[in-house]
């Protein structure tokens, strides 16, 4: 147990070092594109968005939840990229020839991606705060947002790692990634509430776990505990199933590659 902790920490430390050496990448990791969504879309659609429809004092406060979860989505789906490169350049094989527990590599990745995701959520909420968005449920609500975000991130990271282990080339990986992320966003309640969607989109959005996660985060920001708690409970249920499926798939793909 203690040995595994040492392994996971050493490997996580490597991800941190890598990030800190890539100055540009680090900058863009913290000031990520999602922030622009918040700022530009938030202000751009301020007047176009109907306050009655979005059920929020302004569009930005409505959008904040969506941007938080989109960040989780992007991070999670990209979470396997570094392992993909490790696989391609042989570093993964070097690690696998050492007597570490096979799971340590995976765990280090989860740990790292979750830490980064958590920080980004805080940055987004901070920027939203500057634009006047005050989460109704306060600090405790923010903690719940972080937990829900990470729970969603775990499943997504597992999918990403499963893909990294399964694809033949990194071209395939990025194609699938690009293909997945936009429909995930548009077929969810990130940008508009379900009630404002055409019927067929709404139906599809109901099958998107992202919708349920956003619908739990949103009342935590907009409404307060009494409305948030049932939504959070549903989201937890959805995430338990989602994570279980993703982790199962991820574990299978991992076993196939590294045994």
């Amino acid at each position: 147990m203690q040995e595994q902790i040492q392994e996971v920490l050493a490997l996580t430390n490597r991800w941190v070092k890598r990030l800190s050496r890539e100055k540009f990448s680090m900058l863009f990791t913290l000031v990520q594109p999602m922030l622009f969504w918040l700022i530009f879309f938030g202000n751009l659609f301020q007047r176009a968005a109907d306050v009655q429809v979005v059920q929020a004092p302004n569009y930005m406060s409505f959008l904040a939840a969506g941007v938080v979860v989109m960040t989780v989505l992007n991070n999670g789906l990209a979470g396997g990229v570094d392992l993909l490169f490790d696989k391609e350049n042989g570093f993964l094989e070097r690690l696998m020839a050492t007597p570490i527990r096979r799971s340590s590599v995976i765990l280090s990745r989860f740990l790292f991606v979750m830490a980064i995701t958590g920080m980004q959520i805080l940055v987004i909420l901070g920027v939203a705060f500057l634009f006047g968005v005050r989460p109704e449920t306060g600090i405790l609500g923010i903690a719940v947002i972080l937990l829900i975000g990470m729970a969603f991130g775990i499943g997504l990271t597992a999918i990403s790692m499963a893909m990294a282990f399964s694809v033949k080339s990194h071209g395939d990986f990025f194609s699938v990634l690009g293909f997945l992320s936009l429909p995930m966003i548009f077929l969810s309640s990130a940008l508009v509430p379900l009630v404002a969607m055409p019927g067929w989109m709404k139906t599809l959005a109901l099958f998107n776990p992202m919708t349920w996660v956003i619908d739990a985060v949103r009342p935590l920001i907009l409404s307060g505990w009494s409305q948030a708690i049932p939504q959070v409970a549903i989201a937890i249920g959805v995430l338990v199933v989602f994570d279980a499926l993703c982790l199962y798939g991820g574990a299978k793909a991992f076993k196939r590659t590294v045994g």
Partner: peptide, 27 residues
């Protein structure tokens, strides 16, 4: 011990950091 055919080196780590990482992995 294994020395792979590809240069399995992490470009962002120093030489010493490679060895320190492995030292942890071998406990």
């Amino acid at each position: 011990g294994y020395v792979p055919q590809e240069r399995a080196i992490d470009r962002f780590l120093t030489g010493r950091e490679h060895l320190l990482l492995l030292a942890d992995l071998y406990h």
